[in-house]
């Protein structure tokens, strides 16, 4: 299984339908939920947006691995790969923004009985736009290996050398001497914010400040999500700046896997009624305790893998 998953091209083929199919399904649910004013459907759709945005991280990074495997093959057009990569980066960016606002909508659901008016139309607009961009990226991806659906003839070898948007951004990150250190410093600030929320929310669940209700610590979750957002942006800058040091790195594979698990974990604390019912002075139920302990393990593991990229893996 691990051996199978260590082939990025294979992983990319496994994961590349999730952003389009999963997102399309969620979009349909979301529209029906809104039209029929069915909160359960709307919330389910928001949760799927968030999960798909989370899985899309793995889909995007495995794409660079697939690119490395296909590189130089005579039947693969570099121009087609570049067009797909640029479209995918654009769609991925919008998908992560949609995922963030979907999560925020789920979070706000708890805080107030009615959502602020702007959030749902924003998620609707973003999700439609993301779906269109992702469908385009997927279509361009299909054209790399499926000649039968190719709409444009393979570009001539002459223009193969011009870098696309993703590669240009990568050259900016690796070429400008200040960008990498600046991103690293922000990555550290982001991890502190993420850890602060993980510690306080999860140690409350494990019994440390029982006088505080879950609803009170719940307010901190956006701070953790902000930290995660900073780290996703700066982390993607590192990845795009030097994909080669990550795509063949088993430690990076584990890191992405733990980030995925972290996404499901935060969804439990955002949506499930069980932790929500933990009031002032209450002992948390066993499921919430297990989820809290898992969250601490997951984020400690993400930090461990990130730190060990050069030592266990082959980065830098």
């Amino acid at each position: 299984m691990i051996k199978l998953l260590s082939n990025s091209a294979h992983v990319h083929v496994l994961l590349n339908h999730v952003p389009t199919v999963g997102f399309g399904l969620a979009l349909a649910l979301f529209v029906v939920g809104l039209l029929r004013r069915h909160d359960g459907l709307t919330r389910t759709a928001l949760a799927i947006f968030f999960i798909v945005a989370n899985i899309a991280i793995a889909t995007y990074v495995s794409g660079n691995g697939a690119e490395a495997i296909l590189q130089g093959r005579p039947d693969v057009s570099a121009a087609a790969v570049r067009a797909h990569e640029d479209a995918a980066l654009f769609a991925f960016t919008f998908m992560e923004i949609t995922g963030f606002f979907s999560w925020l909508a789920l979070w706000q659901w708890r805080r107030v009985a009615r959502l602020p008016a702007w959030n749902i139309p924003l998620v609707l607009t973003l999700s439609i736009l993301t779906f269109a961009l992702m469908a385009n990226a997927a279509n361009l991806g299909g054209e790399i290996r499926h000649e039968e659906i190719r709409s444009v003839p393979a570009a001539s070898a002459a223009d193969d050398a011009t870098p696309g948007i993703a590669k240009s951004l990568g050259l900016f990150v690796s070429g400008e001497s200040w960008v990498w250190p600046a991103c690293e410093a922000i990555h550290f600030v982001g991890l502190c914010l993420l850890f602060s929320v993980v510690l306080i929310v999860d140690l409350r669940m494990l019994g440390m400040i029982k006088s505080v209700s879950f609803a009170a610590v719940f307010q901190l979750l956006p701070l953790g999500m902000l930290g995660f957002g900073l780290n996703l942006i700066t982390g993607m800058m590192f990845f795009i700046g030097n994909p080669a040091q990550y795509i063949h790195n088993a430690t990076f594979f584990w890191k992405i896997l733990f980030v995925l698990l972290g996404g499901f974990n935060v969804l439990y604390f955002t949506m499930d009624d069980e932790p929500w019912r933990v009031g002032t002075g209450d002992e948390a139920p066993m499921t919430a305790k297990v989820a809290a302990a898992s969250a601490m393990f997951i984020w400690a593991a993400v930090l461990f893998c990130g730190h060990m990229l050069p030592f266990l893996g082959n980065a830098f």
């Binding site: 502190c192 850890f195 510690l199 505080v212 009170a216 610590v217 701070l223």
Partner: peptide, 28 residues
């Protein structure tokens, strides 16, 4: 690695205390 975990715990707790003083998460 220990230095990084230490930083995460130290600055993490500091950040919540400071932001709470500045008015973030008023119901906490």
């Amino acid at each position: 690695l220990l230095h990084t975990y230490g930083m995460a715990v130290l600055v993490g707790i500091v950040a919540v205390v400071d932001l709470r003083i500045l008015g973030f998460a008023p119901a906490l």
